[in-house]
Amino acid sequence: MSQQHSELSAQQQLEAYGYKQELKRSVSTTDLLVYGLVFMVPIAPWAIFGTVYNSSRGMVPLVYIVGLVAMIFTALAYAQMAKSIPLAGSVFSYVGRGIHPTAGFFAGWAILLDYLLVPTLLYVFAAESMVGIFPGTPRWLWALLFVAINTVINLLGVSS
């Protein structure tokens, strides 16, 4: 009975924000972890390892540990915000409701640009790396291959 009561109160909380639940909430923590690893791990370290190695003077593990700590704090902050403001829109909703709707608008567009530009940059770096390994192959072919692989992974992971 208490499980039904907690679900009802969660739905009522969403409705208090003027939000009607229409999407299937099917992404678990494991799903997010696997998606993050599949999306970033094959491309990101390969594409930027040399830059990180040179900038850190060989202390790559320390750089990744510091980044891990920062990302843990970021994940904990997102978890708290998701509990406080259980709406779709992530940064847009959190900043818009927490600070001001205009600030939320700009934060939402900034995070969207991040979601678009960071993978694009990684595709470019990874394609450049592949050309270094396989000289004479076109860069666009490698970039297209990485985009196709990522698209298939995304399509297989989406449910409604």
Rank of each mutant, 00 (worst) to 15 (best):
A75M: 06
S90G: 15
V34N: 02
Y53N: 12
G50D: 09
I48V: 14
A47P: 01
V41L: 13
Y53I: 00
T30H: 06
V66Y: 03
I72W: 09
V52W: 00
I85H: 11
F73I: 11
F49T: 09
M81C: 12
G67F: 03
S55N: 11
S84W: 04
I43T: 13
L87F: 11
K83N: 12
I65C: 07
A82Q: 05
A77L: 13
L37H: 00
L87S: 11
I72C: 07
G36M: 05
G89P: 09
I43F: 12
S90P: 06
G89M: 12
L37P: 00
G50R: 06
V52F: 05
S93Y: 04
R97F: 05
L76M: 15
L33W: 08
G50Q: 07
I48F: 14
V95N: 02
S93R: 05
N54P: 00
S55A: 15
F73T: 07
V63Y: 04
L33F: 05
H100C: 09
V69C: 14
F92E: 10
G67T: 10
A70V: 12
V41T: 14
Y78R: 04
A47H: 02
A44H: 03
L76N: 09
V52Q: 02
A79I: 12
S90V: 08
F92K: 15
A75G: 10
V38N: 00
D31H: 14
I85Q: 11
F92W: 10
I99D: 01
G96W: 06
M59D: 13
G96Y: 07
Y35K: 01
I43G: 01
V60D: 07
W46N: 02
V52M: 08
G36H: 03
H100V: 06
V60F: 05
T51A: 14
H100P: 04
S84N: 11
K83W: 01
S84A: 15
I99K: 00
A70D: 03
A88K: 10
S56N: 07
L68D: 01
S93H: 06
G67E: 00
R57Y: 10
V91L: 12
F92T: 08
A77I: 13
M59R: 14
G50S: 10
P86G: 13
F39H: 12
A88S: 15
Y94F: 15
F92S: 08
A88W: 02
D31V: 05
P61Y: 07
T30G: 08
I65G: 04
A47R: 01
V63H: 03
K83D: 10
P86C: 12
L37I: 13
V63E: 01
P86A: 11
G89V: 13
Y94L: 10
G67C: 10
L62F: 14
A44R: 00
V41S: 04
L33A: 13
L62S: 12
L68Y: 06
V38D: 02
D31T: 10
L76A: 13
G67V: 08
F73Y: 12
